[in-house]
Design a binder for these strands. Sequence first.
DNA 1: AAATAATGTGAAATATTTATAACTTTATGG
DNA 2: CCATAAAGTTATAAATATTTCACATTATTT
Lengths: 70, 70
Amino acid sequence: MALITKIKAYREKAGYKQNELAELVGARRETIVHLENGRYNPSLKLAMDIAKVFGVTVEELFEFTDEPEK
Amino acid sequence: MALITKIKAYREKAGYKQNELAELVGARRETIVHLENGRYNPSLKLAMDIAKVFGVTVEELFEFTDEPEK
DNA sequence: AAATAATGTGAAATATTTATAACTTTATGG
DNA sequence: CCATAAAGTTATAAATATTTCACATTATTT
């Protein structure tokens, strides 16, 4: 399961730094880094909080593909 | 943060037992029980897999309220 | 009413996410 | 170029989700 996300694109479009987005959703900057780079499968709450910041659905922001992680 | 979910309503409408839904999404029956009863904040992957079974969005299926859990 | 199926509970073990912190690398502005 | 900001990495610890298992309760069928 590989995670594809558009967080970085939306974040830059909105003009936020990673640390600003982190603060908006009550997470650490490193967590945002890891998510933008598809490191892991976040909690539903965090995913929804981020989607809400950008006014998009979770489905628009995240997609799982079936490839087993190498 | 309290989690409200419509999993049970959709599951019954679709005619699945808890163990059948669990198998469809590769989880344990007890996990479904706990989710239906709002015990915890699932992973995004699990939430999306369940939503896909019912053909609805994650937002339609799950909602977080701000009340701190008692 | 008895038997069985379905749902619920809770504890212990395991897996995974998230936080924390310290450091590196890359971009950006003076 | 130099200074600083922003982004990325890695390791460890802490928190939380999920599995596993064993049993309890509630519903359903005969």
